[in-house]
């Protein structure tokens, strides 16, 4: 759908296209911000509604995926700023245990990579964001700057800092990161 504008698709066609092609990737991205499956479900619904409402504003200057992801990321950041999510942290702890009877460790296949992934998910949001969008979404630094409304130089600095923090963590854990 690269290069298309909102005039090429009806609102309903667009939302169906976005759900079909980017639903999974958007939900995974939302999760990396809020780290809670229930909240991810709710925020994803809010994002879909926002996209549906704002469809008239999509002018085709950016790719559809970038536009939709920007809405999702902005909503996640708004949510993280709101005090409500801190309350949910307290209440949702038990709900988010995906398998209440099986320890997470027993299903880990590749311990080392899992440790690194965990460390990334535990970075502060602004560093986590650049790492996730780079490694999980395969975005370039320019795309990250675009989707997060952040100057490219800031993205580069954050990436360097994130790598540095990650290396420190990895060294502490006695892991190798090549």
């Amino acid at each position: 759908m690269t290069g298309h504008t909102q005039a090429d698709f009806s609102r309903d066609e667009a939302i169906e296209y976005i759900m079909h092609h980017y639903g999974e990737v958007m939900k995974r991205t939302i999760y990396t911000y809020v780290k809670n499956h229930h909240t991810t479900d709710d925020l994803f619904q809010e994002v879909l509604i926002l996209i549906y409402r704002k469809w008239d504003q999509f002018n085709g200057q950016s790719q559809l995926k970038t536009w939709a992801m920007r809405i999702a990321i902005n909503r996640c950041k708004d949510y993280l700023r709101s005090p409500l999510h801190r309350i949910k942290l307290v209440k949702d702890q038990w709900l988010d245990k995906k398998d209440p009877e099986q320890p997470e460790d027993t299903i880990i296949q590749n311990e080392q990579w899992q440790q690194v992934a965990k460390a990334i998910l535990n970075l502060p949001v602004k560093y986590r964001e650049v790492m996730i969008l780079t490694f999980q979404q395969n975005m370039t630094q320019k795309e990250i700057a675009d989707v997060t409304d952040t100057p490219l130089s800031t993205v580069k600095t954050r990436m360097q800092r994130a790598r540095h923090m990650l290396r420190e963590h990895v060294n502490e854990e006695g892991l190798t990161l090549e």
Partner: peptide, 14 residues
Amino acid sequence: KKAIDDQISKGPLF
């Protein structure tokens, strides 16, 4: 990427 995806969820989220 696989490790991060596994951390998020092994099954599809959408």
